[in-house]
């Protein structure tokens, strides 16, 4: 949690993208206070070994965060493509204007 807070403070991590990490951190931080509830829940879901339930939850959280990254990368990729296309067209127009000016 301290690392996440430090990264946000130094503006190396956006608050937006820190959300899932903060959520995962809070769950990890407070999970030991609710061992009885976790035991009851994992037994009800058929887990013979309660920590396995915690590990599974952790795995899902990491999958979710990775998925968020993939969506973000796809969006950035698209923006990047559109910027490059616009740049190429603008540059061509500029060359055309400069050529006509000569």
């Amino acid at each position: 949690m301290l690392t996440i807070i430090q990264l946000v403070r130094r503006k190396l991590l956006d608050e937006k993208y820190a959300f899932l990490w903060v959520l995962a951190g809070i769950v990890m931080l407070f999970a030991p206070l609710a061992t009885r509830a976790i035991d009851t829940m994992s037994t009800a879901l058929g887990f013979h070994y309660p920590p396995a339930f915690i590990l599974l939850l952790g795995f899902f959280a990491i999958c979710l965060i990775n998925l968020q990254f993939s969506v973000t990368i796809s969006r950035l990729n698209k923006n990047n493509k559109q910027l490059a296309q616009r740049f190429a067209i603008m540059e061509q127009r500029l060359r055309e204007v400069e050529r006509l000016d000569k």
Binding site: K81, A84, F87, A88, E91, Q92, E96
Partner: peptide
């Protein structure tokens, strides 16, 4: 006329 893409985007792009 030439459109110069600043980096390789792929055939479709």
């Amino acid at each position: 006329r030439v459109l110069r893409l600043p980096f390789n985007l792929g055939y479709g792009a």
